[in-house]
């Protein structure tokens, strides 16, 4: 059972729909008990980083506990940004601090938000991105992005390089929307389901 954590950040039905298409058993929940019981967690999200405040307030300990016990975790978009220390979009809202660094807005020389299909450059060895070609296109829609760090497993160029995907042990994050990235995205979700 995969629990999709519902903390009021945008449309998450599409993630559930994609998992169901792949034959996975998934629920959408905001119940700490269900989160604690789930074999895997997905924290989706699109929109403002301040929405993570409700994640921090009610669900932080159960989500972190799930990660600590080695269960696979996938953060999508704002859900990935939350894995970092924070974002300049909402300085008063802390992230989980799993990865070091802070998310920040795209520089003024590029159009913002970054909307559409862009390419990922994979570092190789990523379990989540196994079978994904270098240069594959994925769908983005965001105004803030995470820096490239040691745990970056793929990056994308847009006003400089940013983390398209991060990965350490059982914890994964993607800035793009796999549920909206056609076959490439479904393959990535399939990899996660198989962990």
């Amino acid at each position: 059972m995969i629990a999709i954590v519902d903390y009021g950040a945008g449309n998450i039905s599409s993630v559930k729909k994609a998992l169901e298409h792949l034959g996975a058993d998934a629920i959408v929940t905001c119940d700490p008990m269900q989160i604690a019981a789930a074999e895997k967690l997905i924290v989706p999200g699109v929109g403002h980083f301040s929405r993570c405040q409700s994640l921090n307030k009610n669900l932080r300990s159960s989500v972190l506990e799930s990660m600590r016990t080695g269960r696979p975790f996938l953060g999508i978009c704002v859900g990935m940004q939350w894995l970092f220390q924070g974002s300049t979009e909402a300085p008063e809202t802390p992230g989980a601090g799993i990865f070091s660094g802070e998310c920040s807005r795209f520089p003024a020389e590029v159009k913002c938000p970054h909307v559409g299909w862009n390419q990922i450059e994979c570092n190789g060895g990523s379990r989540l991105l196994h079978g994904i070609n270098n240069g594959a296109f994925v769908y983005y829609t965001h105004s803030y992005r995470a820096p490239v760090i040691a745990e970056t497993s793929a990056c994308t160029e847009y006003g400089g390089a940013f983390s398209a995907a991060v990965e350490r042990d059982n914890i994964y994050g993607v800035q793009f929307h796999p549920e909206k990235s056609a076959e490439t995205g479904l393959k990535i979700l399939e990899n996660f389901c198989a962990f």
């Binding site: 590029v110 970054h114 559409g116 299909w117 862009n118 390419q119 450059e121 240069g135 296109f137 160029e157 847009y158």
Partner: peptide, 10 residues
């Protein structure tokens, strides 16, 4: 990889 490959969408 070119510095900006944000695809034009159809």
């Amino acid at each position: 990889m070119p510095s900006n490959r944000l695809a034009k969408r159809i």
